[in-house]
Amino acid sequence: MKIDKAIPYGTQDITQQDIDAVIAVLHSKFLTQGPLVKEFEEKFAAYVGSSYAVAVTNGTAALHLSAMALGVNADSKVITTPITFSASANCIRYCGGEVVFADIDPETALLDINNVRAILEEHPKGTFSGIIPVDFAGYPVDMAAFRALADEHGLWILEDSCHAPGAYFTDKNNTKHFCGDGSLADLAIFSFHPVKHIATGEGGMITTNSEAQYKKLLKYRSHGMVYQGNSDLIENHGGWYMEMQELGYNYRLSDINAALGVSQLSRAQLGLQRRHEIAKRYDTAFAGTAIKTIPVKENVYHGLHLYIIQVENRKGLYDYLRANNIFAQVHYVPVHLMPYYQSLGSKKGDMPVAEKYYDHCLSIPMYPTLTDDEQVYVIEKILNFYN
């Protein structure tokens, strides 16, 4: 089989419905923050099962505002995973806090709760402020277990669900917990970068079940200001009146982005179903070979943002696939090995499981518009390389 066009590891799917939704906004009264932002927030909250949602400019902004709302400051120490995009850790540094990395589970590549527990037990209670688990590749973290651990040590939880809208796990009581539904984490965040499940160009969302946190986030998103008619106003000079009560940022999403988000959200579940079809074919193709895949527990519905294999001679396979128009990717270079974090004291050898995972991992094409023929071609090339 020969495929002439490039096959990326992930890409957006823009339909005529999406284009029409954006054009409608361009003909409307609102280009920046308007009614479609609120509509997107409400529909997304309903999709993941949370009480509140706050739309922002991107996933990094969502992390930053969440860290602010949770009170991160120079006295805060927060535990997170090294296998994630660096923003999961950087948000703590933005607020002056200290990042403490814990290693990953060798089976799932998620933050290892046993390693987190060991770190907590090595220090007096009160040393740490919170935990940022990441639903890496779309695999839901066992938030019930992390919630119990966090409660034992008086910690908040910020769930990074950028990879996992629509994913869930079922707990021992047979209750489904969707990523970002607010049932177990204090706050959760999502990204709408083009390679994610829902694309808005750039965009992010924070979800929570806390009304108090919701109100904080709305304020922080818009320069720390409150406006005429808001009960938090100290005084009211007239209909024009606004006041900056705290230091905030301009992290507002536009109606243009929100229109695309609403349109994309309407077919998000279909996209997830297609991702599972693709994953099943990969699972079957690689079973019984030396190509290692990540097993999924029976109580988990995977979000499948990424399909990751672990292989020997990863660089050789990566180059071979690129030579054959297949643009695989590596997720991620461990954050603790980034020069910035090494300058703060991290070093090679600190996270042996994460570092071993990094040496072998490769994300191969996974997106709803990947055709059956393209996937057959990808599988054929991977198997040919090793055979």
Results as ranks from 00 to 15, higher is better:
224 G>H: 02
231 S>G: 01
248 G>L: 05
268 A>I: 06
278 I>M: 02
243 E>C: 08
269 Q>L: 06
268 A>M: 06
230 N>T: 07
269 Q>M: 06
235 E>H: 12
241 Y>I: 09
260 L>F: 10
231 S>W: 02
255 D>A: 09
267 R>G: 00
237 H>T: 14
238 G>L: 09
261 G>M: 09
265 L>Y: 05
236 N>T: 15
245 Q>P: 05
276 H>W: 15
242 M>L: 05
247 L>K: 10
229 G>M: 03
272 L>G: 06
229 G>H: 00
247 L>V: 13
250 N>C: 05
227 Y>C: 08
226 V>R: 03
235 E>L: 10
262 V>C: 11
225 M>R: 14
269 Q>K: 10
226 V>T: 11
261 G>P: 06
268 A>W: 03
276 H>M: 03
226 V>I: 15
247 L>M: 08
263 S>Y: 06
230 N>H: 15
241 Y>R: 04
268 A>L: 13
247 L>G: 04
238 G>K: 07
257 N>C: 14
275 R>Q: 13
225 M>Y: 02
230 N>I: 04
237 H>R: 13
247 L>P: 01
264 Q>M: 08
242 M>V: 00
272 L>R: 11
262 V>S: 00
246 E>F: 11
230 N>E: 15
272 L>K: 09
276 H>T: 00
253 L>P: 00
265 L>A: 02
245 Q>T: 12
244 M>K: 15
263 S>G: 07
263 S>R: 00
262 V>N: 00
269 Q>P: 01
231 S>C: 03
261 G>T: 08
273 Q>M: 08
256 I>D: 03
247 L>H: 09
236 N>I: 10
273 Q>S: 06
265 L>S: 02
241 Y>M: 09
265 L>G: 00
257 N>Y: 08
244 M>E: 14
270 L>E: 15
251 Y>R: 10
244 M>I: 12
268 A>C: 07
247 L>S: 06
260 L>E: 09
230 N>F: 03
228 Q>R: 12
253 L>M: 15
259 A>Y: 07
248 G>H: 03
258 A>Y: 09
278 I>P: 01
277 E>A: 15
255 D>S: 15
275 R>M: 15
276 H>C: 00
258 A>I: 13
269 Q>E: 15
251 Y>G: 06
229 G>C: 03
235 E>Y: 12
257 N>F: 07
245 Q>V: 11
232 D>F: 06
249 Y>F: 14
256 I>M: 11
256 I>A: 11
260 L>W: 09
270 L>P: 00
249 Y>R: 09
249 Y>G: 04
253 L>I: 02
256 I>T: 13
230 N>Q: 11
260 L>Y: 08
